[in-house]
């Protein structure tokens, strides 16, 4: 180390090579290890534990569930898998209804998001370049303010004596207040409102990258604007549509705050069911079983999303 750096100090043969490789290898390990260990310990392991506890029985103890493995007569290690929680899920119509209802509500909310988000993303992507960043910032800005408060704002608007009803009555469109709050409609509005940025941003990213001369080429080859949109723009923006839809659909399925605050007593969603099971009934094993079942439901869309993300990264 005492040779002047930058001058060709002789490397002592292959020990030098080994040192260089070892130094690099150790450095890499030090970089990989902290995030890897953290995510394994605080993200991967918890899911294993959820899976484990979903096979346990509820007891009044700390922790409030039975162990899965136990020593029998100090000789045999016994594994007790209790399927009761899953059987209960299938048996009780409530859970199945909540499941299907979650999918329905999330799907409708995703479709509404796409319907509103696509033209918005399109308009931003075709706006003058100087304005695009500003317009995008405006899409993202609400996302930075409290989610809870934004949902709360809708309570004041959608209530029976809320701003929307007051306004509609004042201009004479209706004379009886519309019951919107505590219905599925309020949930749709809340979901679309909260997740719209997640739809617009990926759509914008694909639409902005699109080569506009493709549309000119289509027009030159005799394609009318609407057909050109259907045949060129739409297929090319498919990655954005898929990514945006997944980003809206997946968290919507598990959403708790919006159905709790805006939905009614009959707005059954799986996230709310889990919350009640855990906090009200304190049945941890059943709550875990609900979580596992929800994960199973979401595996397919999550995989689709992951594959899209990786595809988008590979060309680099």
């Amino acid at each position: 180390m005492n040779g002047r750096p930058g001058n060709g100090r002789p490397a002592n043969g292959w020990t030098g090579a080994v040192r260089w490789v070892v130094a690099g290898g150790l450095g890499r390990l030090l970089v990989v290890l902290p995030p890897y260990a953290w995510l394994t310990l605080f993200f991967l392991v918890p899911f294993v534990i959820v899976l484990k506890i979903s096979f346990a029985e509820m007891v009044s103890a700390i922790p409030p569930y039975t162990p899965l493995v136990a020593w029998v007569e100090d000789v045999y290690l016994q594994l007790r898998l209790n399927m009761a929680n899953y059987i209960f899920l299938l048996d009780d119509g409530l859970y199945l209804t909540a499941y299907l209802n979650s999918i329905k509500i999330a799907a409708i909310a995703t479709a509404l998001c796409l319907l509103l988000g696509y033209p918005m993303a399109y308009a931003i992507a075709r706006a003058p370049e100087a304005r695009r960043n500003g317009l995008l910032l405006l899409i993202m800005l609400p996302f930075w303010t409290s989610f809870l408060i934004r949902v709360y704002a809708w309570i004041g608007i959608l209530k029976d004596e809320g701003l929307l009803n007051n306004f509609l009555i004042a201009i004479g469109v209706i004379d009886q207040p519309l019951a919107i709050l505590h219905t599925d409609w309020a949930v749709y509005i809340g979901l679309v409102y909260s997740y719209l940025p997640f739809m617009v941003l990926p759509l914008y990213a694909t639409l902005e990258k699109m080569d506009l001369t493709l549309l000119e080429a289509a027009a030159d080859l005799g394609c009318r604007p609407l057909r050109a949109f259907l045949l060129v723009t739409l297929p090319l923006s498919m990655p954005g549509i898929v990514a945006g839809s997944m980003l809206v659909f997946i968290p919507s399925v598990g959403e708790f705050v919006i159905p709790d605050l805006l939905g009614g007593p009959d707005t059954l969603m799986i996230g709310k069911v889990l919350w009640v099971e855990f906090f009200t009934n304190r049945d941890w094993p059943l709550a875990s079983a609900v979580a596992v079942a929800m994960l199973v439901l979401l595996v397919a869309p999550i995989l689709v999303f992951q594959r899209h993300r990786q595809n988008a990264e590979e060309p680099e």
């Binding site: 930058g6 060709g8 490397a11 292959w14 030098g16 090579a17 260089w20």
Partner: peptide, 9 residues
């Protein structure tokens, strides 16, 4: 011999 010598040396 440049074997094993990193760019910065």
């Amino acid at each position: 011999d440049m074997a094993g010598m990193p760019p910065y040396r």
